[in-house]
């Protein structure tokens, strides 16, 4: 629970920090669209290169972005494997006969046990995982003796490999872009930017200011609520609620014992908060001045220009290549 990062903002001084949040939000969206227009691995690799250039120019540590990727590593691997297995277009690159028999299954089980035993070396988790998968492959390919139950063909096509790289690189670029946004923009500025960008929605009756206020209050209370959830969990654990074990029936009761206090406290808090806001003269929908005033500068213009150029570039590439 404690590892959830909410305000990913990390103070810094690169040019990305000096940009208006609106510029950043729009640029990121536009660039994402541009990335989706690209068709080949080469194009994407160039885009990836550009993304890394932005990081370098913005003095953002690549390692930090990498660390941010950790939680979605599984997703990346899954995407990769999925593409390799299920895309059956283009030239056939690999055609291996895989054997599943008594000996090979035993070996695989043994291999799994060894892998799990080594799993406590958390540092090498990734390497071990890759070794494990590789090992399974080798076992199925080469261990062909003993009673054989069945065989199957492991087929990898050109397009499969290409697509798996393609999808993963695209995902990487998109994640990098959005991380850059949240890493270099204070939550307050972000909501302010969203608010300003949503102004036009007033036409259809949505007040962008109220919306922004809701977002910023949510941002402000997320850490408090997580902290509270943790305390409630400890308080119920004190009464023997064991959230890890127990029968399903007990478990439901225990989850209720967590949810009810959370809701009750949330209601109480929202009442208090409404009182506090009202007593400080807040009236929904009424005109307010703002302490954070956004101003577009030359840097924003340049960034906007660069973004538009990149988009134009990818449109051209899409049409002519």
């Amino acid at each position: 629970m404690k590892n959830i990062i909410i305000g990913q903002y990390i103070p810094g001084s690169g040019f990305l920090y000096k940009l208006d949040p609106r510029t950043k939000i729009i640029s990121v969206i536009v660039l994402m669209v541009a990335v989706f227009l690209l068709k080949s691995i080469v194009q994407l690799s160039i885009a990836m290169g550009l993304a890394i250039l932005i990081l370098i120019a913005g003095k953002i540590s690549i390692i930090r972005i990498f660390r941010g990727l950790k939680p979605i590593f599984v997703l990346l691997i899954f995407t990769f494997v999925f593409q390799i297995f299920f895309n059956k277009e283009g030239a056939l690159w690999v055609d291996e006969t895989m054997t599943i028999g008594f000996v090979s299954i035993t070996s695989m089980v043994l291999w799994t046990i060894i892998w799990r035993m080594l799993a406590k070396f958390k540092k090498f988790k990734m390497i071990l995982f890759i070794l494990y998968i590789g090992g399974l492959y080798l076992i199925m390919k080469y261990i062909t003796y003993g009673t054989i139950f069945t065989t199957w063909q492991f087929l990898v096509y050109e397009k499969g490999v290409e697509m798996s790289f393609f999808v993963v690189i695209r995902l990487l670029i998109i994640i990098t872009l959005s991380t850059v946004l949240t890493l270099t923009t204070k939550p307050t500025d972000l909501t302010q930017g969203i608010e300003k960008l949503m102004r036009p929605l007033k036409v259809i009756g949505i007040s962008s200011e109220d919306f922004a206020l809701i977002i910023s209050i949510s941002l402000r209370y997320i850490p408090t609520i997580l902290d509270e959830a943790n305390k409630i969990m400890l308080a119920q654990a004190s009464r023997g609620a064991d959230f890890a074990e127990g029968k399903l029936k007990d478990k439901i009761k225990q989850i209720i014992s967590l949810l009810v206090p959370m809701f009750i406290i949330a209601f109480k808090r929202s009442e208090d908060l409404a009182d506090a806001m009202e007593s400080r003269n807040f009236v929904p929908g009424r005109e307010r001045t703002r302490i954070h005033d956004l101003k577009l500068g030359r840097l924003d213009l340049l960034t906007g220009l660069a973004t538009v150029l990149l988009l134009a570039g990818s449109i051209l590439v899409r049409i002519y290549l």
Binding site: A276, R280, N281
Partner: peptide
């Protein structure tokens, strides 16, 4: 109410 101290002191004045 504010995300930072500055925002919070500002809240009433903004209103």
């Amino acid at each position: 109410v504010g995300v930072t101290v500055r925002d919070d002191i500002a809240f009433g004045m903004e209103n």
